[in-house]
Design a protein around this nucleic acid. Structure first.
Lengths: 333, 333
DNA sequence: CTGTTAGCGCTTTCAT
DNA sequence: ATGAAAGCGCTAACAG
């Protein structure tokens, strides 16, 4: 491994000069700079970013923590963050939390211990208090999909209530009155309750009473969509439409519906949530609520750039979802 | 930030002793050890892994380079690698190459400059020579989906030729004779040519001549699947089956086929390749070639564990694909 | 504009 | 078993 000393020696200058060249410091004689640069390429010198980071307390890398690595939702998030930061010449270090407290803690500590300049977190298990503690340590922070009181300027959120409202309202406009709902895990995920709240508001506006028999609490997995639909069928409740709090559960429900020979969308209209990539690929193509996770992720990355590297930009904290009408919903017959 | 000095002071010992405790070194007096441990937790001490890494030249973290972050294929790969390494108490640092030479180089350099103990790479743009150069630097390496002469013990591969063979053979067994083929980018990706070679072998075995008019070179994108099918229709060629060199192109072709009112699978049987997660979600469910990327990724991670941390395990270099029969293929009518 | 010097937080000989 | 001291490769005052 080539070090800065060897470059200095070869170029006949002091290591400070090499360091200056390395960091694009203006005040270096052109000729010396040239000499250093040729020495660098002759020796195939690669700066050791670890040493650099230790000495300077910066690393030009941003830590990102997502819940899953294998997911279209987090895939979009990672991709967007990486693109923005790479364009700003920053590196990204990605780790996973799996919605598990210990793993989220471990992930955050790893990122901090690796001297990341800032953190972009999508965490569910970590408590507000723990996030305050992280924030205390003065490391710049961006929180995706979470609203923590007092940290508003670091939070990027989706208006989940509105999303829930839009999905149910769409069905009501199509003439549906008996609308089933499969939610996410209410105790573990605040967006699950917010989406449900939106659903209830739409029902209320239309003068429809919320019916417990038309409600099933899932966990956002495809399997729980299957279970949800099964449970409605087992109970023998009547419904012509179904709202699912995410696309995975919606596809699960669709699969199960076919087992019952329910025609989609004629016998049953289904709305999903998130508009992940495969929503276009299921059949019939899924009507869903578009979650602008890409824009949110970009915003989080920009927020970091603003905080850490003083690159100015406007930060929008709250994003609006939109209904994407496809083929899985139809007029009530 | 708490340092090892402060812990030493608080515990009334030298920093060497603290370091020993930190590294689980046996030869520390029990009482002192206790004292150090309480000092650590009192001060909420977190070792700085950067400093550690600089001093010891190890980092307990493995660099992973994938082509895309937002992809079910690479998602599965990252997930599997992360799980194996986390279980071994190693950390993972993920970066992206986007199949672009500069970005792949940059990614590898970043990982090396961050003192990663080893690299797991999925690269397409980097040449064999560049991989030799990386290997020269003595950093332990695992290459997924690539066979580099001389580095066989670091390569984990899929038998792509066999996969191509299986897909076409399946269609032939269903009675098809006029089988179209949409390949990946032949010049850029060796698996694209290997899969095609398998297709040709199956044709030959059945005494069917390869017909250029039934061939289209795509680039593995959904869009190129659409283009491929369109081009066959434009040419007006007759075919009752279609092999696509990956699932994305297959779904593109399926979408386009519906535009032409082609009934699937009755008018046209389609086979994909990779068996990514959404293959089950398209309609009709896609018959495809299962790519055991998960097992391959696990094997790559284990290979690293073996090389770096001397954790012994058998490494299998070549994996076999398998046909997954679903609903997108049918007997020729 | 350039060089000297003192660390960054930790590991690792080498003595004791 | 413990401590002292020398560095890992680099940045960042401080002089000159």
């Amino acid at each position: 491994m080539t070090t800065i000393y060897q470059v200095a020696e070869k170029a006949g200058v002091s290591l400070s000069t090499v360091s200056r060249v390395l960091n694009g410091n203006k005040s270096v004689n052109k000729q010396l700079r040239k000499k250093v640069e040729t020495a660098m390429s002759d020796l195939n010198y690669r700066p050791n970013s670890i040493a650099r980071s230790l000495a300077s307390n910066r690393s030009d890398s941003i830590g990102v923590l997502v819940s899953e690595l294998n997911s279209p939702f987090f895939g979009e998030m990672m991709e967007a963050i990486e693109a923005v930061l790479r364009a700003a010449n920053k590196h990204v270090i990605i780790t996973v939390g799996h919605n598990d407290l210990a793993q989220e803690q471990d992930g955050v500590e790893f990122l901090i211990s690796r001297n990341c300049d800032a953190l972009i977190l999508h965490v569910e298990a970590l408590s507000d208090e723990q996030l305050y503690a992280i924030n205390e340590s003065k490391i710049p922070l961006a929180l995706v999909n979470r609203m923590v009181p007092g940290l508003e300027d670091k939070c990027i959120c989706l208006n989940n209530e509105k999303g829930g409202y839009l999905s149910t309202k769409h069905l009501i406009e199509l003439g549906h009155r008996r609308i089933a709902y499969i939610s996410g895990p209410l105790d573990k995920s605040s967006d699950a309750s917010e989406r449900l709240a939106g659903h209830k508001r739409a029902l209320m506006e239309a003068g429809i009473a919320f019916d417990k028999n038309l409600f099933f609490e899932g966990d956002y997995s495809e399997a729980s969509g299957i279970q949800g639909l099964s449970s409605f069928m087992d109970k023998g409740v009547i419904f012509s439409a179904l709202v699912c709090a995410n696309d995975w559960m919606a596809t699960g429900a669709m699969t199960r519906a076919r087992d019952y020979d329910i025609e989609l969308p004629d016998d049953l209209s289904i709305v999903g949530f998130d508009n992940v990539i495969f929503a276009r690929q299921v059949f019939p193509k899924l009507t869903t609520i578009h979650n602008p996770i890409k824009q949110m992720a970009e915003m989080a990355a920009k927020n970091i750039l603003r905080q850490v590297y003083k690159i100015p930009m406007d930060v929008i904290p709250m994003f609006d979802p939109e209904l994407v009408r496809r083929d899985s919903t139809a007029q009530k017959n």
